[in-house]
């Protein structure tokens, strides 16, 4: 698949570490994701994080979303408020609300109906009330939520909740959405819904980026353009140091494995390699 990697970053993490009560959870996290373009296509990106439980994925995600202040280091994103014309926006440190966050329980406001929740998500957009209404209705139709628009979260099925939670973040106008284990506990139909949501998000804006973690390595390889293994590093004595860090990166774009409709044998080879990396860390 043809693509061009620009010199502009969509997400930069520098020397990130987090402590809880003096206990180091993650350290030395460094990576830089570049913006890419594809001919005749709007192409956002999906970045996957995989690793064993307790390796700090959720902590890293809280930092990436600005919900947690790291002990050291920083997370940089393009400042969309300073986006002017053709020029690439300057980078800024992530703050609360810069990045949408969807947790694995698909948390929603318990006192708002689906429509009210989406209306709330759009409250900061400079659009007329009728324009907001039209936009919400279009999305409700596209995401199959029109019939439940006046229902509260406790009246929704798991799949409807999950689509509402993602849609809320899409409409709140953040280009970045983090999903903490979005496939956990979902049936085949709902997994397909989330996969479609990824595609919808990625293809609606050049800078749209979905960052997710999962224990389903095949899904991670199938959906991501970049895949990171988070785990414990091996010390010189052969033991694992119990502090999460990035162990390995798989650039699935440069490997020619991104944007495929079906998984090939090469994909499955990478799945095995990723599993091995996870087991060793």
């Amino acid at each position: 698949m043809t693509y061009h990697e620009t010199s502009d970053s969509i997400l930069t993490v520098e020397n990130l570490s987090v402590d809880y009560d003096g206990k180091k959870i993650i350290q030395n996290i460094n990576f830089d994701e570049k913006d890419i373009t594809r001919p005749n296509k709007i192409q956002g990106q999906s970045i996957a994080f995989v690793g064993r439980s307790g390796r700090g994925k959720s902590t890293l995600f809280r930092c990436l979303s600005g919900l947690e202040k790291p002990k050291t280091g920083k997370v940089l994103l393009p400042d969309m408020h300073k986006h002017q014309g053709e020029a690439y926006p300057p980078m800024k440190e992530v703050g609360e609300g810069d990045v949408g966050f969807v947790d694995q329980k698909y948390t929603l406001f318990r006192h708002k109906t689906v429509y009210q929740a989406l209306q709330f998500a759009m409250r900061k957009q400079k659009l007329e009330k009728s324009e907001k209404h039209d936009k919400i209705m279009v999305h409700l139709r596209d995401w199959g939520l029109e019939t439940v628009k006046d229902q509260y979260p406790n009246e929704l099925s798991g799949g409807q909740r999950q689509r509402t939670a993602i849609l809320e973040q899409v409409l709140s106008h953040t280009n970045y959405i983090i999903m903490d284990e979005p496939f956990s506990g979902l049936d085949v139909g709902n997994i397909n819904n989330v996969k479609s949501a990824f595609k919808l998000i990625n293809e609606s804006h050049e800078l749209n980026t979905v960052i997710f973690c999962t224990h389903d390595i095949e899904l991670a390889v199938a959906l991501a353009e970049s895949l990171y293994v988070l785990g414990y590093p091996t010390l010189e004595n052969g033991r694992l140091e119990p502090i999460g860090t990035l162990i390995k990166k798989y650039d699935l774009k440069s490997m020619g494995l991104a944007w495929h409709d079906q998984l090939t044998n090469r994909h499955y080879d990478v799945v095995e390699q990723v599993k091995q990396s996870i087991l060793e860390s």
């Binding site: 979303s65 919900l67 609360e96 947790d103 948390t107 406001f109 709140s172």
Partner: peptide, 26 residues
């Protein structure tokens, strides 16, 4: 749950909005 507070914060709610939406109205 912390998730409810984080959910509001991720929707660009200020801390006072989190208090209003999640604690008071919610």
């Amino acid at each position: 749950p912390q998730q409810e507070l984080d959910h509001a914060r991720s929707l660009q709610c200020s801390r006072w909005e989190v208090l209003w939406e999640v604690v008071i109205k919610g």
